[in-house]
């Protein structure tokens, strides 16, 4: 193992240090480890180039001499190889480190660990003094998050099996555009080509593995795509008026925009956007919440209660 990595490190150093393109001949003669028949050395070099590129190292191919343009040469430009975050100070380093630490023990743990090592290698002391004491932690996600992320960055299409609202197993194929997390769940969205529309999926409703399909650079991500905007497109916010018993229904009270004291009860105003899940959360609080407005919501509560009485009577 170390023979191969030693050769890769030496190749990187040589290609980085050179001011001009190095030909294969020069590389084979000067860099240690290219031994064997001409054919096997060639194959070794092709693989090494692919391996370095898989690490994100940009190897440029260029002509050696415009007059004798017969042999290609290789080099790595230091400005492409090295980290350049522009002018950053200790506070920026502290914020970036916190951002990476949020992934500790989570789906992108390894990616974030390598970021942290890079930040710590910049020689800029992290300055946490102006940043509040924070311990951020990402919402839990399965390892499939890494696949979706990889597909977004390489612009690969993905296919997966999705649990529909009636628990049917649906096969989906999308061009993934973005990732987001809200209320403890991860969502990803993109263009569903068979339905030709933008769709959003909850990661924990994906069954089994997400497969990356086709070739990279398969699509363009529209610059104005906003996952949450597309999720909430259909629903517009409505105002509800509820009576809630004092010291009860804390979850609803937290959302209120206005509270009026009415003795044993309080009358609150709040905004909601998803009528179905709002109805569920009102019913959760049993007889500690009474809907006053809007009338259609009150009607839905009455229907649900009638059904509950009928089914349990």
């Amino acid at each position: 193992m170390s023979r191969k990595s030693e050769r890769l490190v030496n190749l990187t150093i040589a290609l980085l240090a050179t001011k001009r393109y190095l030909t294969k001949g020069e590389i084979f003669r000067s860099i240690e480890g290219y031994e064997g028949s001409e054919e096997s050395v060639e194959r070794m070099f092709e693989r090494d180039k692919d391996d370095l590129r898989s690490l994100g190292i940009d190897i440029e191919v260029g002509g050696l001499d415009p007059l004798f343009n017969d042999e290609a040469g290789y080099r790595i430009k230091p400005e492409n190889y090295s980290l350049d975050l522009g002018s950053v100070n200790g506070e920026d380093i502290a914020l970036l480190s916190l951002a990476a630490q949020a992934w500790k023990g989570q789906a992108l743990n390894d990616v974030a660990h390598s970021v942290l090592l890079k930040l710590q290698s910049m020689g800029i002391e992290s300055d946490i003094s102006s940043v509040p004491h924070l311990a951020p932690r990402m919402a839990w996600a399965s390892d499939e998050l890494a696949t979706v992320l990889d597909a977004i960055t390489t612009r690969n299409r993905i296919s997966f099996t999705y649990l529909s609202s009636d628990l049917a197993h649906e096969n989906r194929e999308i061009a993934p555009y973005a990732l987001a997390s809200s209320a403890g769940h991860w969502y990803f969205g993109g263009l569903d080509s068979t339905k030709n529309s933008l769709r959003t999926f909850r990661l924990d409703r994906v069954l089994g593995e997400i497969q990356s399909i086709g070739k990279p650079d398969n699509f363009e991500i529209p610059s104005n795509f906003d996952l949450f905007a597309s999720m909430n497109e259909s629903s517009h916010s409505q105002v509800a008026v509820l009576d809630i018993r004092k010291d009860k229904a804390f979850g609803l009270r937290k959302m209120s925009t206005d509270i009026e004291d009415k003795g044993e009860w309080e009358r609150i105003k709040l905004n909601y956007s998803d009528p179905s899940s709002f109805l569920d959360s009102i019913l959760w609080y049993l007889d500690d919440v009474v809907v006053i407005e809007p009338p259609d919501l009150q009607k839905q509560v009455i229907e649900a209660l009638t059904l509950l009485v009928k089914n349990h009577g």
Partner: peptide, 30 residues
């Protein structure tokens, strides 16, 4: 030749962007 840390990969950039977004959510009053 190797003394500068390597540039960030795409996945690393996105991991940071997601992390920064979470931080922003935590300090939104500042």
């Amino acid at each position: 030749t190797l003394k500068a840390p390597r540039s960030l990969g795409m996945e690393e950039i996105v991991a940071l962007l997601l992390g920064l977004s979470l931080l922003k959510d935590s300090v939104n009053e500042n």
